[in-house]
Structures are given as C-alpha cells and as structure tokens.
Amino acid sequence: MTVLLIAIGAALGAPLRYLTDRAMQARHDSPFPWGTLTVNVLGSLLLGAVAAIPAGPTVTALVGTGFCGALTTWSTLSYETLRLTREGARFHALANVLASVVAGLGAASLGYALARALNG
C-alpha cells in the first residue's frame, strides 16, 4: 500500500514540476533556472510543514516521499549548475547553488514553523 501511495504522489508531483518549470522559464529571459528553484523551494516549504504536523505514515508516503520527492529535484539543480558553469555563466551557477540551498532551508523552516503555529 505504501508503494502505491508514493506512486500516486509522484504521479502528481512530477508533471507539476515540469509544468511549473516551463511556466517559470517562459516568463524569464535568463539562463538562470527559475523553474527548478521555484519547485525546490515550494517542495521544501511543503515538506517542512509535513514534518511539523503529526502526520502518519500514509500522509508522509503520499505527500512527503511521493509528491515532494517528485516535485523537487536535486539532480536537475546539479545538472543546471554544471551547464551554467560550462557555458561560462559562473555567476548564475554560483547564485543557483546559493539561492537553492538558502531558500530551500529557509522555506523548510518556514513551512515547519507555520504548520506548528497552525497546529497549536
């Protein structure tokens, strides 16, 4: 049952990642990977909230592992940073890593704090 919940969450998260990435990149005329940053920060926010609530294994599998796991993407962050470096866009590459780590940790902390505050 757990594997099915993870698959359902992933089936929702992966297309959302793709659609969000395409929408964000269409709005920015920049080599900076705005779409990947957006999905990683949003996924970190949601995962922080899931970690803060007394979520059972069902919610954790569906939302945490499945949805957030498919929505966020460390491999794409790594690839895009490497691509930027190879293209000579070293500033964008460094900004991508720093913004992703700082914003991701900040979003996870914020999601955790908000969920704790709303959950009493």
Rank of each mutant, 00 (worst) to 15 (best):
Y18G: 01
A99W: 07
G104D: 04
R83F: 10
W74M: 14
V39D: 00
R83L: 14
I53A: 14
T60P: 01
A61H: 11
F67P: 04
G13E: 07
G64Q: 11
T2C: 02
A99R: 03
G35S: 07
G104E: 02
D21T: 15
L110P: 00
N119D: 15
N119E: 13
R90L: 12
G120I: 04
M1H: 10
A55T: 13
L62H: 06
A14K: 00
D21R: 09
V50G: 02
G13Q: 04
L105Y: 10
Y79V: 14
L71I: 04
G9L: 12
A89H: 12
E87N: 01
Y79T: 14
D29W: 07
R83I: 03
T81C: 06
G56K: 04
G9Q: 08
V3C: 03
S109H: 13
A52Y: 09
V39N: 01
N119S: 15
T65I: 15
I8E: 10
R22A: 12
P15C: 10
T72F: 11
S75V: 12
A113V: 12
L4W: 11
L4I: 13
G111N: 02
I53K: 05
P54N: 13
A115C: 07
P54V: 09
M24P: 01
E87D: 05
G13F: 08
G104H: 06
T36C: 09
L45V: 11
H28T: 15
A113S: 09
